[in-house]
Design a protein around this nucleic acid. Structure first.
Length: 538
DNA sequence: TAATTGTTGGCAGC
DNA sequence: GCTGCCAACAATTA
């Protein structure tokens, strides 16, 4: 009996370093490359046009690559749990291969598909290639629990050793489609247009999807080896938008147009040429891949990772979701140009610099508006072309000081933070054209401009551009006090879970801690009587 | 128990 | 452009 394989694409939209594709092609008489447009991922009110456009471009590129190898991509529509059993039968499928995925939706879907495959007598291969390491392996090596700090994660990865090398390239000539699939191929199973699937005809992102773009972009950024070796994440300029300060490889990694193992191997190659003279994780370029790895592991191992309630690592904070605030934030109407420009870049391009994301995330949650990080997460998930379930949830928890990060007293200023990088406000002028003629002196705080200046700039505050919806100077202090209260309540609740004796001990411990805190300030002198100062910025 | 460190704060004062 | 303070968290190390 002959072998008929399906390589089922979901993420991993590439031919390079694709072990599932190799497993599918291995000794197969027929190979059917398949993508299923799941209605779950095509909801215009929840998933914006830019990311869907990026997906369709990636599929078109994948199709072209298969055609160059004597095959083609088949794009079907519907729920995979319904489409797959149908084609198993129609195409005479004996083997199903797909890249492993740890997101909750994918977990459920794939568990069902495995059962359906078993029922149909179809063997299943599901290798790991979306991440550097197999999350289950990392978890096992860490005693079944995910590390919760980057340091702990880095230590774990160091102990495990280098990730697997990228898989070999697929053969120049791939097995043909199954005859039944080939006849179907004449009909409607091409990559659809945006309008075919209920979206506006075009998005507005300048970033184009696909493996070809991904490899070209990687080559472009890696060609400057000095830049690669000197890369230090927090030092980038979030206001650069013509050539961003980071690689913008995130959307390609999200969809798997680029293999993280390939990117990692290229980085290690460049580092080795420089004999150790390069930046290190967590700030280096390689470190950025490790962050992705760390948060993906957390997402895979922590229940309810995209929610506050029922999420064991997330602090319970009494956010108040004010619908008007959330909408103003989403639609660039907060009255703070730095914040509104970033949100405009998000809606227009589907991408912003990491520090820009920090600014707006802090502003929505603990900094200014006191809305839940889950509300912000949904907006990011709608517009970002690189929206990744685990990374989005992790970063929102980080920025809202709900998990991973606890220094809630460090608040980004919606006025001064951007000014450090872009004194003239070119970034604001570009993304908020209504402010393009506002003098630099007022562009971060246009409500302070005299009326005559507003008139000359053609932008009246309160009419052409909104007044600030909150007073940052006031609310950020109030919010800090609320954070303090929420943290204290959390500690009290944790203490309440312990036995009576332990509670008493915890109370004594709390007293001791507060005493030691003031003591350390008083006794902080070291040698010259000055408190020990640690370098925050190099 | 104290000190140190943690990818990425703001601000006054010099 | 640098230093030190603000009022202060939590995990790890010594």
């Amino acid at each position: 009996m002959g072998t008929t394989s399906i390589i089922w694409f979901r993420k991993g939209l590439r031919l390079h370093d694709n072990p599932a594709l190799l497993a599918a092609a291995q000794g197969a008489d027929h190979l059917c490359p398949l993508f299923i447009l799941d209605p779950w991922f095509l909801q215009p009110d929840k998933i914006g046009v830019n990311r869907v456009q990026f997906l369709l471009e990636s599929l078109a590129d994948l199709d072209a690559s298969f055609r160059a190898r004597g095959s083609r991509l088949l794009v079907l529509r519907g729920k995979p749990q319904e489409v797959l059993p149908r084609v198993f039968k129609e195409w005479g499928v004996t083997r199903l291969c797909f890249e492993s995925d740890t997101e909750p939706y994918a977990n459920q879907r794939d568990a069902t598909v495995r059962q359906l495959a078993e029922t149909a007598g179809v063997e299943v291969h599901s290798p790991v290639s979306h991440t550097l390491y197999d999350p289950q392996l990392l978890l096992a090596r860490n005693g079944g629990k995910p590390p919760l700090t980057m340091q702990a994660f880095t230590k774990l990865v160091d102990a495990v050793g280098p990730p697997p090398a990228p898989a070999a390239d697929p053969p120049e000539k791939l097995p043909p489609l199954a005859p039944q699939a080939a006849s179907l191929a004449a009909a409607a199973c091409s990559v659809p247009s945006l309008s075919d699937i209920g979206y506006p005809p075009a998005g507005s992102t300048p970033f184009k999807g696909g493996e070809t773009e991904a490899l070209a972009r990687m080559a472009d950024y890696l060609s400057d080896k000095d830049w690669v070796c000197a890369f230090e994440k927090p030092k980038g300029n979030p206001a650069l938008f013509l050539r961003p300060a980071t690689t913008v490889l995130s959307p390609y990694l999200k969809f798997g147009c680029l293999s993280p193992r390939m990117f990692h191997a290229k980085l290690q190659q460049i580092y080795s040429e420089r004999s150790g003279k390069h930046t290190q994780p967590p700030v280096s370029l390689r470190g950025q891949l490790l962050w992705r790895e760390f948060f993906t592991l957390c997402g895979a191992a922590i229940p309810n990772f995209d929610r506050m309630e029922g999420n064991p690592i997330c602090r319970q904070i009494p956010w108040v979701d004010d619908a008007d605030f959330i909408q103003a934030w989403e639609e660039s109407r907060t009255g703070y140009p730095w914040i509104d420009a970033i949100m405009a870049q998000l809606r227009q391009q589907g991408w912003m610099h990491h520090l820009a994301r920090h600014s707006v995330a802090c502003f929505l949650t603990r900094g200014d508006l006191w809305c839940s990080w889950e509300a912000g997460q949904a907006v990011f998930d709608k517009y970002l072309i690189d929206a990744d379930w685990s990374l989005n949830a992790a970063n929102w928890q980080w920025l809202s000081a709900s998990a991973f990060f606890s220094q809630y007293f460090r608040v980004y200023s919606p006025i001064s933070f951007g000014k450090q990088y872009d004194k003239n406000g070119d970034y604001i002028r570009h993304f908020l054209p209504v402010l393009k003629n506002m003098p630099a002196k007022y562009i971060y705080e246009p409500w302070t401009a005299p009326l005559s200046v507003q008139q000359a700039a053609g932008c009246i505050i309160g009419k052409d551009y909104p007044r600030p919806i909150v007073d940052h100077a006031t609310v950020h202090k109030e919010n800090m006090a609320k954070m303090k209260a929420a943290y204290d309540a959390g500690k009290a609740a944790a203490a309440g879970h312990t036995a009576a004796a332990a509670t008493a001990a915890a109370a004594a411990g709390a007293d001791g801690a507060s005493g030691s805190a003031s003591g350390s300030t008083a006794a902080g002198g070291k040698g010259g009587g000055k408190p020990a100062k640690r370098a925050r910025k190099s």
